[in-house]
Each structure stands twice: as structure tokens, then as C-alpha cells.
């Protein structure tokens, strides 16, 4: 198992490198730069800032230079900046933010990741709890009203855009009943509405997956034998079947966790939460190259980590599975 984990960790390096490289080059293709602003900056200032942050455009070529020479000049120049950035990353330095003077990308991401982690963990727990309960009920009372109800809930949960769900929660609990804060961050109560908004579609997916997988497991011989021998439904559903039926849910949870923990821009905007999802969008819009690259790398790393955790969870839950 440890060998397998080490192997996957080793693979993570080229994967992350590829993610970083692709992102680096596409973001540099986007029109407009970080220092292009509504009030035109003095060319002197732009030049100086671009030098400071190491993103200056290629030095001009003599007018007689051919197209090929120009392209080569551009490529060489960008390649140099790419190497410098990658070199920094290898040393664990994600560089300074280009939009917020004086702030380092690593501290911006760390702060927002902390917020998003708390919110994401709460949402995942709620989703897991709801999803498993709904999925179990639906599988147990298959083809009854309960099953149809749970399935309808599950499908409804993934049939509404989450900004609509969030807005409805906000309107009802925040603004009409005034029982929960309508936004902001810093008090435990602030966690409830955004976590529910994030959790609802997730729990719907989990319920769907778990129902299908539980039905399959319940049809297997060992469960039938147990039932025939008089084992209670409760023990079967919550004891014997879980071990096998939970596996597809676990593999769904891995990537979902990585996505949720790195924040959701919709929920952050609706509820004024200082999370990480905003940086993916605003970083790209502000052409804050380093910030958005940093965010992408963190997401990629978390995704790989979560997938490794899924593998570990598999072996812990089902000893037959060898990594």
C-alpha cells in the first residue's frame, strides 16, 4: 500500500507540472495585462512594474527582423519567464500577487483556503449525512412512495442552479424570518446557509449513487443469506451492506471534496464569504497571473491528494482491495 501511495505521489509531480504549464501559457494568451487599467497608466510606470514582477513583454526587435525571428524572440522571452516562475514554484514560492501590491500569493491563498476549508468540510459532512440516509431509505423501501420521494428530492437537488437555491435560502431564512445571518463570515451561524447551499446538490448526488450501489449489494448472496437467517433489516442496512455499498460514494467524494474545499464563487458572492473560489474568477479577470496560477496549482494538488485518500479509504473499508 505504501509503495502504491509513493508511486502516486511521484506521479503527482509531472501531473502538477503539466497543469501549471498549460495554465501559464493560456493565461498569458488572454488579452490585456495586469497593469492595463481604466485610467491609463503612465508607460514609465507600466514598464517599471512589469520589470519588477518579471512579466515584461519581449524586447522590441529591429524593424527589419523577419516574422520567424520575431516569433523566436517572443517564445524565448516567454520561456525565460516560464522557467523563472517554475523555478520559484520548485522552491515553494508562488510569487507576489500582481493585483494586490505587497501581498504574497501564498498568504492570500492560505487565508482564503482556511475559510473555504471550514465551509467545505461542513458542507461535505451535511451532504454525506443527508445523502446516505436518503439513499438508504430509498434502497430499503424500493419502488415505494418513500423511494420515489427520495429520488425526486435527489433529482430536484441537481436540477436547480445553486445560485437559485442559495438565494431562496437567503430570502427565507435570512431576510424574512431573520433567524440566520444574511451573509458575512466570522460567526458560527454564518456557516449554516452557505453550507446548506453547497451541500444540497452534493447530497443529491450521493443519495443517487448510494441508492444504486446499495440495491446492487442487497441483491448479493451474503445479504440474502443473512436475511434468510433472520438478521434484522437495521443490521443489514447499516451494518453489513454499508462496507461494500459505500465504495462508489467514497470515489465520488474525493474529487467533490477537492472542488468544495477550494471554494465556490457563487456561494461566496451570494453570502459575502472570503473564500478561495473568488480568486479563480477574479484572478483571471484581473489578469493576476501569479494568483490564478497559484489557485490552480492548489486545486490540482488537493485533487491528487483527495484521490490518494480515496484509495486509502478503499483499503481501510474493504480489506480485500489491495493497493
Amino acid at each position: 500500500m505504501f509503495r502504491k501511495i509513493a508511486h502516486r505521489l511521484l506521479w503527482a509531480i509531472p501531473t502538477l507540472w503539466a497543469i501549471g504549464s498549460i495554465s501559464f501559457f493560456i493565461i498569458r494568451l488572454a488579452p490585456g495585462g495586469p497593469f492595463e487599467r481604466e485610467r491609463a497608466l503612465d508607460p514609465l510606470v507600466i514598464a517599471s512594474l512589469e520589470r519588477e514582477y518579471g512579466i515584461a513583454p519581449a524586447p522590441p526587435m529591429p524593424p527589419g527582423a523577419g516574422l520567424g525571428a520575431r516569433a523566436a524572440n517572443q517564445t524565448k522571452h516567454l520561456a525565460r519567464q516560464y522557467l523563472r516562475y517554475m523555478g520559484g514554484l520548485c522552491r515553494g514560492d508562488m510569487g507576489p500577487s500582481l493585483y494586490y501590491p505587497g501581498l504574497k500569493v501564498s498568504e492570500i491563498l492560505l487565508n482564503s483556503l482556511r475559510t473555504s476549508f471550514v465551509l467545505g468540510a461542513a458542507a461535505l459532512s451535511i451532504a454525506f449525512l443527508f445523502g446516505i440516509v436518503a439513499g438508504t431509505l430509498a434502497a430499503w423501501k424500493r419502488d415505494t412512495a418513500l423511494d420515489h420521494g427520495a429520488r425526486a428530492f435527489a433529482v430536484a437537488g441537481i436540477s436547480l442552479p445553486n445560485f437559485v437555491i442559495g438565494e431562496m435560502f437567503l430570502l427565507v431564512f435570512g431576510l424574512w424570518l431573520k433567524v440566520l445571518p444574511a451573509g458575512g463570515w466570522g460567526r458560527p451561524a454564518c456557516l449554516i446557509l452557505p453550507a446548506l447551499t453547497l451541500a444540497l446538490p452534493l447530497s443529491a448526488y450521493i443519495a443517487r449513487i448510494y441508492r444504486a450501489s446499495l440495491i446492487e449489494v442487497l441483491g448479493q448472496d451474503y445479504i440474502r443469506t443473512a436475511r434468510a437467517m433472520g438478521t434484522g433489516w437495521f443490521r443489514v442496512l447499516f451494518g453489513m451492506a454499508v462496507r461494500n455499498a459505500i465504495l462508489p460514494v467514497i470515489s465520488f467524494m474525493g474529487p467533490a471534496a477537492a472542488a468544495v474545499v477550494t471554494g465556490s464563487v457563487v456561494v461566496e458572492r451570494l453570502f459575502a464569504i472570503p473564500g478561495m473560489g473568488t480568486h479563480f474568477v477574479n484572478g483571471a479577470l484581473n489578469r493576476d497571473y501569479t494568483l490564478v496560477l497559484g489557485a490552480v496549482m492548489v486545486y490540482g494538488a488537493l485533487l491528487i491528494l483527495c484521490n490518494i485518500l480515496v484509495d486509502v479509504a478503499y483499503t481501510l473499508i474493504d480489506p480485500r482491495i489491495r493497493l
Partner: peptide, 11 residues
């Protein structure tokens, strides 16, 4: 997690 959020995010 709720307890964690108490400590981490209090402002």
C-alpha cells in the same frame, strides 16, 4: 467541524 470553525473564524 463546527467547533473548528468557532475557533478559526471568529472575528
Amino acid at each position: 467541524i463546527c467547533a473548528l470553525s468557532f475557533s478559526l473564524a471568529s472575528r
